[in-house]
Design a protein around this nucleic acid. Structure first.
Lengths: 233, 233
DNA sequence: CAGTGGTCTAGACCACACA
DNA sequence: GTGTGGTCTAGACCACTGC
């Protein structure tokens, strides 16, 4: 009943996974080449190639250009993390998304931020603090710094009514980003915003966004205590 | 100097990204079909196909089988998270990996775990608590439950000298997993193990591992306060 | 019915690793 | 020099969508 009649590259991926599970190919060993597998399965080499390429993207095989394909040792798990817009995440859980601006100020960057955003020291940034809520319950407290050299139009944007992440995504849709995740105890002030107790643990997500080699923004999101970020391999 | 002479599908990806950045293709709009792009770039359709497929895997385009390719709206960022073995992570930071077993006990599963591991109520699990350290400093406190129905040989394994994750990876290399990440305040007892203060915030990673539809293990890792998990898009 | 993306094929050329 | 994986080509069939 659970059987699927896979064909083509999916079938080959499946079959190779079976052989791996059954230790027919051992960890670290070189498996047969594309030509050999193509002959064995009676398919074109391109089909085997796709199967092998995808398995190596999943971290299960390791391919080397002119040497061969090996079973990965010390397999690191590759999880695909989807980082949705906050609005999307909240609405897809069935709640109503709410937003409001807590603070807005032009400030010069603190030392730690100068390094992380590769700023010249004199630069002014736009500092925002915003609260995202789910059906009225505070959900995320966001501290954001926007590089006015890269995004000067931020100065005149209306962040009372527009969440800075969505505004930035519209202004510059194709940036790259670095993320970090950690945990912090809430300060008394932050706890108040999140309707939590001072000292409670908050899941922290930080993001630095780049346009080519120019920093765009630094954002630190403090999630309501109890929040879990989920993923699946 | 920074110029690269890309060719083939990489060139096409690059060029399409440029058009997206310059809003030549607008968010939500349908872009030209594979045949048209192949003609434009003077390449085979398979080459365009690969470029478009990869862009859609990156969440930048959305393809529908018999309808067309659109520019993704409300772009969710896709981050690739690599989850290394603890030993690997510690050693790659230049520190020496250390391990020791804190507790080992056969226990029946608590209620919350019965649900999450889809156990029958009567089942006994192996409960382990272990400490991972980096150059002598406590790094992660791990609480682990192993399903003895799926992995009976765990009962006789030597977890004094073998870290349960590595042992399990050897026993059953090709499992699937669910992850969650969150934050918790350390209990007095856990804090002591981690050489931290009670109440400090700890980054928590939980993992449930499955072999087909059988649960293998539940692990909860409490990281030393201050730890950050990094990733990049 | 025309056009789409998904997939496969049989062939090809390449640069390099390894012996 | 042989074999490897990486890539490309020109052609094909398919199932389905949207007209």
């Amino acid at each position: 009943s659970g059987l699927k009649a896979l064909s083509g590259y999916r079938f080959i991926k499946n079959e190779l996974m079976r052989r791996l599970r059954e230790q027919q190919y051992l960890a670290g060993a070189t498996i047969p080449g594309e030509v050999e597998l193509a002959a064995e399965f009676g398919v074109a080499r391109a089909t085997v190639n796709r199967a092998l390429r995808e398995l190596s993207e999943d971290g299960i095989l390791e391919r080397k250009r002119h040497s061969g394909t090996k079973v990965a040792t010390l397999r690191t798990r590759h999880a695909k993390l989807e980082i949705p817009l906050i609005r999307t995440e909240i609405e897809s859980s069935g709640a109503t998304y709410g937003y409001n601006l807590v603070a807005r100020e032009e400030r010069s960057a603190p030392d730690w931020l100068i390094k992380r955003l590769a700023l010249s020291e004199l630069q002014k940034l736009l500092y925002l603090q915003c609260l995202h809520s789910a059906s009225g319950q505070p959900h995320i407290l966001e501290c954001r710094w926007i590089n006015l050299k890269t995004v000067p139009q931020a100065l005149s944007a209306d962040f009372e009514n527009n969440n800075p992440n969505e505004w930035l995504v519209n202004q510059m849709p194709f940036t790259t980003a670095e993320f970090s995740f950690s945990a912090e105890c809430l300060s008394r002030k932050d706890a108040k915003h999140l309707n939590a107790k001072a000292g409670e643990a908050s899941f922290i997500a930080e993001r630095i966004t780049w346009l080519e080699s120019n920093s765009v923004t630094f954002a630190k999101m403090a999630f309501r205590p109890g929040y879990k970020m989920l993923t699946r391999i």
